[in-house]
Design a protein around this nucleic acid. Structure first.
Lengths: 222, 222
DNA sequence: TCAATAGTGTCTGTCAGACAATATTTG
DNA sequence: CAAATATTGTCTGACAGACACTATTGA
């Protein structure tokens, strides 16, 4: 069948580390590019995976030990030139998770790299990451997407820093709070957060259950 | 190779017909669903097509006789359930073109159907079309995307009707013109348009050459 | 009490939408 | 001139951002 091609899934696994947007790369255990850092990825298993999202969840778990973060299809990269083995289709996903989740999985072959200073990666993985970062930056302007980078519970000042790390620019505190209220995806957690320094503690928030696997957008940005 | 799967491209070919958003469907010439109306689509030919966009252009041309409209990747639909022949990957694209282009191609097996009143289509084509329509509606709110539905040259009132057909709601005339000016993707054509009735003629505009294959977005919508 | 950060109230310039006035064509 | 639609000017309410004030903690 000349219409059958190699089909893979690659995942751009993003997190905030040291106040910057970073991507989790895993060491390739096979040729080509064996031993190089690359996006976690793998073949679709038609027998096991019911659909692409299934495959993405399975592959991410195999490569990083992490199971159910936020996962969204990004774009498909396909063609003759991107893989030395020949014509290939890669359905790319992006995943978002709090850094502590990656840390506590301590998978030996996974490391975080800041997205703004990546070296040349195998295949077209630089392009894929760039596309993912564009998407995050864009969605951070008007949606609740970055909340998935902030962990289970977080304070509004911490969440604002996450948004600022995504967007690469400082945000107005009053506007940010107004927008979060307008989005209405957060709920206050009864407890309060202890602060590192000596100052007023901040209210803890979490994503409402109905938004754990989704997003909400605003008509007007920021 | 258990990782090789059937790979196809399907195109949601959209146009404005009778003031409503419509999709071009073509009669299937092969099983399954032979003779049924479905999205123009076909197998990726690894020998011919350099990449997915290449394949989409080729397939759209084969099925409709139309060559280079605006074409953008939509999303990939894949899984075990969507095609009776087994696990399949379909990379979906959407294309936009003025109705007259479709009309003047008079391809016998192509017909336009309003997207809001579609019957049950083969495969998951209803889902794919719904995803495309969501995308257009969304992008119409803040980008120049619908301009590609308006033909080579058009007046601002005509373009506003195109936007309104996409969005399914009336727009404020003053705001619409302000936004178009802010987008700065249009240029006036020296000539003027004749009007059907007896009234002041409208200025003709066209997309600036640098935006023929691209979009421009606004920070704030509408 | 001071330092530090959280959270809120208020003012102001900007912008979307409403309204309406003006412009230009045919009959 | 009347009818019809294009195009532009102006007003107003809503909102984003700036500023500053209050709140609450530890030292």
């Amino acid at each position: 069948m000349h219409q059958a091609v190699i089909a893979t899934v690659d995942i751009v696994f993003l997190t905030i580390h040291n106040g910057r947007l970073g991507v989790a790369l895993s060491k390739r255990d096979k040729e080509p590019f064996q031993g190089g850092d690359a996006l976690p990825g793998g073949y679709i298993h038609a027998q096991e995976d019911r659909d692409c999202l299934d495959a993405a969840v399975r592959i991410l778990h195999e490569k990083t030990g992490i199971l159910p973060p936020y996962l969204e299809q990004l774009q498909t990269f396909a063609g003759a030139a991107r893989d030395p083995r020949g014509w290939s289709v890669s359905v790319a996903y992006f995943a978002l998770v709090h850094y502590r989740v990656i840390e506590s999985a301590h998978h030996p072959d996974v490391a975080i790299f800041p997205v703004d200073a990546l070296r040349r990666l195998p295949f077209d993985h630089n392009d894929i990451i760039a596309t993912a970062v564009d998407r995050i930056r864009n969605k951070a302007q008007y949606s609740s997407l970055p909340c998935h980078l902030a962990g289970e519970t977080f304070t509004l000042p911490k969440l604002q820093k996450v948004y600022e790390a995504c967007l690469g620019e400082a945000l107005n505190k009053v506007s940010f709070r107004r927008k979060m209220q307008e989005l209405a995806v957060l709920e206050a957690v009864p407890g309060q957060m202890e602060t590192e320094g000596a100052h007023r503690p901040a209210q803890l928030y979490r994503l409402k259950a109905e938004f754990k696997n989704g997003l909400k957008s605003l008509a007007r940005g920021l």
